[in-house]
Design a protein around this nucleic acid. Structure first.
Lengths: 228, 228
DNA sequence: GCCACGCTTCGGAAGCGGCCGAAGCGCCGA
DNA sequence: TCGGCGCTTCGGCCGCTTCCGAAGCGTGGC
């Protein structure tokens, strides 16, 4: 009953790893052959093979003056295969995000995720906002709609930046940031069109998701033309 | 594209292994939590986590002054699970032998495996041999049968030991050794009741198996009462 | 009975890797 | 704006592991 670290360390040495890979097809090899494969001398190979045998990674059978080594079983081959798969992956992986987190979350007080980029797209595409100086300003039509929704535009204008883009790391498109983004998020949460979901037990990152309520889905479609 | 050894070595350190096991459920933990779990200081933990991240075994996400770490994906968890399974096994495993090798093989010129111990059982159980001085001698009835089979008893008697037991390492019961054992094997091969099978490509240990021919199966049953 | 061969054990040297303490950087709250 | 906090980098020490050469042991062949 050895530990995870001890077992992995057995595979983690270049010489031993070369031996194990040579044994992966299932055939037995002698200590001398394995030494040659690993590129080390007979004494070193003997010590390494002893360690592998004590760890159960290889099985040994003495026959005359030869000692035959083979993998310690199906599970050993499987473990090595799995590790080879890991080793072959591109090293750097993007932070994996679960589906609920992709749908909606808070990003520095504004709505991010699919809902956030959807809002951004509708607000700009329907002429509520127009670009100016790297950010956005509200059009007369947009102001009327936002005021009707009870968005506190005065509070939004007191922020350092009124409205600007924030690249969404899960959608790779921008969502709305700045004071307007914060006020929009505040509104959606106050009206309970979106609710915070506590991280579940099966959860990964301890971030709350933003989940649309049934009423919220209807409202988002009615007010912004945002499809579910 | 790192190597098998490098990947395994990442898991092979006790501190890193403790961190990975803590991350196994899938939840994200901060660098500080992982340091406490691994029982090391913050600097050491930082270095270890950096190595794990560069190897793709964990993913990192900075949030405020915390850094959240989680496993680098499904495959990583799978690899660790597999290694844990390996680690939980009893360390020493017996040399695994394939079925064909268990059935029949040559052991120092005599027949070993299930066929060998079966022969031993029939020869002694049917009164062809009787014990004497730690070995076996032929009974009159046995001698008649063996001579009828064309076994060269004179040659068998010229051997240092006429008939004795040899513990069979796959069956854990004795098969027949000594001069009689050798002569019996010679007979069975000469009559092609058993044939040598060359090791196949999928083979493990490079030993030839002994395989009964259809005719051999009938003869072994008829002459010795040996069931297939 | 001797030598050749395969493998192991022993002893010593070198290198790698992990750990800590001190210092530095960035984020957060007052 | 300042201090606390989490985390990182740097420098240095220590221990473990790996390797080789020399010698020893058992097997197999002459």
């Amino acid at each position: 009953m050895t530990s995870l670290a001890a077992t992995a360390a057995l595979i983690g040495d270049p010489s031993r790893a070369a031996m194990l890979q040579a044994l992966l097809p299932g055939e037995a090899l002698t200590a001398g052959e394995l030494a040659r494969i690993a590129g080390i001398g007979a004494p070193a190979a003997s010590a390494q093979l002893k360690a592998l045998a004590e760890g159960g990674l290889v099985a040994v059978h003495a026959q005359g003056r030869h000692r035959w080594f083979r993998l310690g079983g199906e599970e050993v081959a499987q473990a090595i295969e799995t590790l080879l798969g890991l080793a072959a992956r591109p090293a750097r992986r993007p932070w994996p995000h679960d589906e609920a987190l992709r749908r909606g979350r808070l990003c520095w007080h504004h709505v991010a995720g699919r809902i956030g980029v959807g809002l951004h797209e509708r607000l700009t595409g329907q002429g509520w906002l127009e670009p100016e100086g790297g950010g956005w300003v509200v059009t007369p039509r947009g102001e009327a709609r936002l005021v009707a929704l009870d968005v506190d535009l005065a509070a939004a204008r007191r922020a350092p930046r009124f409205a600007c883009d924030c690249m969404d790391w899960s959608e790779r498109r921008p969502h709305l940031a700045g004071g307007l983004g914060r006020e929009l998020a505040t509104l959606l949460l106050r009206r309970k069109w979106l609710v915070r979901i506590e991280p579940a037990a099966t959860d990964t990152l301890r971030r709350r998701r933003l989940h649309p309520t049934p009423e919220g889905l209807r409202a988002l479609e009615a007010e912004f033309g945002l499809a579910a």
